[in-house]
Amino acid sequence: MKKIVLTAALGALAVLATAPAFANEDLAKKKNCLACHSVDKKVVGPAYKEVAAKYKGDKGAVDKLATKIIKGGSGSFGPAPMPANPQVSEAEAKQLATWVLGLK
């Protein structure tokens, strides 16, 4: 009986551990980020995995990316500018940046 309960508990933890990743992808869809980006391939903008690799080890990356998400930017990944996305709050931008930076 203990083994069944332990197995069920571990299964529930696995689902909960992956839930934020899905929630952040859902947020990216909701905020229209996936119109120009993809997790693993370049669309108009860089793949999120490419962004994560570029900023790996950068302690200020979450704040930098959150600002770019809200205000837009250009030059980091080529000549195409990233437009501002004023429909994203600062908290949502940080959530999205954290998710992107966690991709491998």
Rank of each mutant, 00 (worst) to 15 (best):
V62E: 08
A17I: 06
T7S: 14
S38M: 10
T18R: 08
M1P: 03
A66N: 07
Q87T: 15
A14R: 03
L103D: 06
G72C: 03
A9S: 15
N24E: 14
G11T: 09
K104Y: 00
V44L: 13
L101M: 03
G102W: 03
P83S: 03
K104T: 09
C36G: 01
P86V: 04
S76K: 12
K41H: 15
A61N: 10
G102A: 05
K56Q: 14
P81T: 00
V100L: 01
Q95G: 14
I4L: 13
P83Q: 05
G102M: 02
A14Q: 04
A97I: 07
H37W: 08
S74H: 06
K42P: 00
A23R: 09
N32K: 13
L65M: 13
K54P: 06
L65T: 07
A84G: 10
K49F: 02
G11S: 08
P46M: 09
A53Q: 14
K30C: 00
G75N: 05
A91T: 12
P83E: 05
D26R: 13
K94P: 09
A53F: 08
A35N: 13
A21H: 13
V5W: 10
E50N: 11
M82K: 09
K71F: 02
K2M: 10
K104V: 01
A52H: 08
V5Y: 09
A84E: 12
I69N: 06
K29P: 00
A80N: 09
K104E: 10
T67H: 13
D26A: 12
F22Y: 11
K30D: 15
A53S: 13
A97S: 14
L96W: 09
P46I: 14
V15Q: 01
P81K: 03
S76M: 14
L10N: 02
A9W: 04
P46S: 11
S76H: 11
G73Y: 03
G11K: 07
G11E: 08
L65G: 08
A28I: 03
I70A: 04
P81H: 00
G11M: 07
S74V: 02
K49E: 15
F22A: 13
D63E: 15
A35Q: 15
A8D: 01
K31M: 06
N85T: 12
K2S: 11
N85Y: 02
A9C: 12
K59I: 09
P20L: 01
M82Y: 07
K68T: 10
C33F: 02
L10R: 01
A21R: 14
V100W: 03
W99T: 03
H37N: 06
P20N: 04
L96Q: 04
A8T: 11
